[in-house]
Computed example of a mutant assay.
Amino acid sequence: MAYATLDELKGRLDWELDEDELRIAMGALEDASDLAATYGREWPEDAAPRLVRTLVLKAASRYMRNPNGYTQSRAGDETLAWADIGQDAGTVYLTREEIRLLEELGGRRRGLASAEISAWGSKIRPSGGRVPVDYGGDSFPLFRDDRGPW
């Protein structure tokens, strides 16, 4: 499964791919598509949003241009340097911004959320968040009330 085609990737590269590079490019497209499905959601190939295709092509072309993850190279003294991207150096990867965009497209939002919980087998009483009191008067609003802020 790939969210972009090999021809679309070739259009983003400024050289003709040989047979080995074509094989590597197909693998890069599949890896980038797998990452997009992991961080976003698994869209059908023909119904994926355009931005998903764009992000897959960006990741695959980034890898094809620099498969080893070099940030510096010198021919005279044989100097090479790798980016400080940790284990992602030399692999198809998505940037933090690309991951954030995929999460939003997939309906995943980071942050805090609350969920109402209750004990197993308990029944929620429609008391409006009021608890009984010992002195025999009206119940006391403890959590919330339909009529007020509690």
Rank of each mutant, 00 (worst) to 15 (best):
G76F: 15
R108N: 07
T95S: 15
L101I: 06
T95M: 08
E103L: 00
R74F: 12
W82K: 15
V92T: 03
T79C: 01
G106V: 01
K58C: 01
W82D: 12
R109S: 05
L80S: 08
R96E: 15
Y70Q: 09
A48E: 02
I85S: 10
N66W: 10
K58V: 06
L35C: 02
E97V: 01
D77A: 04
A75R: 15
I99N: 03
R110V: 00
R53A: 13
Y39I: 04
L55K: 08
N68F: 11
T54D: 15
L105Q: 09
R62G: 03
E103Y: 00
L102N: 05
D88T: 10
G76C: 05
R65Y: 12
A89F: 09
A47Y: 14
D77H: 02
E30L: 04
G107V: 06
G40W: 15
L105S: 07
A60S: 12
T54P: 00
G40Q: 11
R110P: 00
R65H: 13
G76S: 11
W82C: 06
A81L: 11
G86D: 15
G106T: 11
T38A: 06
A47R: 13
N68W: 12
P49N: 11
T95R: 12
D88W: 15
A83T: 08
R96N: 13
N68K: 10
A60C: 09
R100C: 00
I85H: 15
P49G: 04
G69D: 09
S61V: 04
G107F: 13
G106F: 14
G90Y: 10
A37H: 05
L57M: 09
R109F: 14
A36T: 08
G107P: 07
A32V: 03
E45I: 09
S61G: 05
L57H: 10
G107N: 10
I99C: 02
R23S: 03
Y63F: 15
R62Q: 11
A59S: 09
P49Q: 13
R74P: 00
L102E: 07
T79K: 06
R41C: 12
L80E: 12
A32K: 03
G107T: 09
S73R: 14
I99H: 03
A28K: 00
V56E: 12
L105R: 06
P49L: 10
A36N: 11
S33M: 06
R41M: 15
W43N: 02
A83Y: 05
V56K: 09
R23H: 02
L29M: 03
E45G: 00
T79A: 13
R53L: 02
D31A: 14
A47F: 14
L51T: 06
L101S: 04
A28P: 00
G27V: 00
G86H: 13
G27Y: 05
A83W: 05
G106K: 08
L29E: 07
A32S: 07
D46F: 06
V52H: 03
M26E: 15
L94S: 04
P44R: 13
A48C: 01
T54C: 02
W82S: 10
